[in-house]
Amino acid sequence: MKPFSYARPADVAEAVRTVATEPGAVFLGGGTNLVDHLKLGVARPELVVDVRRLTSRAVVDLEDGGLRIGAAVTNAELAADRRVRERYPVLAQALLSGATGQLRNMATTGGNPLQRTRCVYFQDVTTACNKREPGSGCTAVGGSTRNHAILGTPGVLPDPTAAETCIATHPSDMAVALAALDALVHVQGPAGERLVPFPELHRLPDDDPSRDTVLEHGELITAIDLPPLAAGARSAYRKVRDRASYAFALVSVAAVVPGDGEIRLALGGVAHKPWRARRAEEILRGAPLTEHAVRGAMEAELTAAQPQPGVDGGNGFKIPLVQRTVVATVRDLALEA
């Protein structure tokens, strides 16, 4: 626990300016992750800038039939929104599968996608972690890997001492749904506003595991747009976890069938970011969504999957599990039709 200053700027512009000019500053939304990190010493900011009252807390209809979600809309409010439940069930289901009622009442649309990995070594300041302390190494490799990545990793048993090694997963359920929906993120930065397609918001560790997203320091999410879906579109979120509630996904699947011969699949719990299964999507484009076809497409998607061994038995089970979960989710969607 390190003392910090607290600021509540008058508007988004001031908040962005404040954080952009202070390297030790962070934004505070619902605080459901950051406050834990303050206590644990995982986050040690000089300045906490509270933006919760600065952005919109409304969900508004867009002219094209989509929805714009203000960054301050809580997860609970968003999950309960009738338009979301009817038009984007994948998002409502993802939100309701996350955390607990109390946390969903606090967590915000802008903050949820920016929550950090629950890798136990990231959260323990007495162990090495490249994400928390760049260059210190990765204790997770060969350790407790049940919740870790199988896709987008450098390989089986990457070098734990290398500065780029990180096998963490992104924990958000909401983000997986937004990736499958091809949502658009409104980002306000010191140089103005830009739009980031949601599937490009998060990044792989590459050469810098400390960065979870493409956002620059000082950039703030102000809203997220959901593009319109045709009337006959279907979507669903399926989360598989170790207990019935209040657990992060071992694997999860967001499936969207827009109705134009396409399917969009995003996977949670398998990578450093919500994983769009582009290869499987490509194979399935225009094809009937039979169990056989989906299984085959997922096999192709998972050829690059790298199971991690671990002191807890490792995470190799995720490969068959995610395949089975995708097949079941698409099957159930097809039954809905």
Partner: peptide
């Protein structure tokens, strides 16, 4: 299940 990491 208290996951014991014998390396740490």
């Amino acid at each position: 299940n208290s996951v014991w990491d014998p390396r740490v």
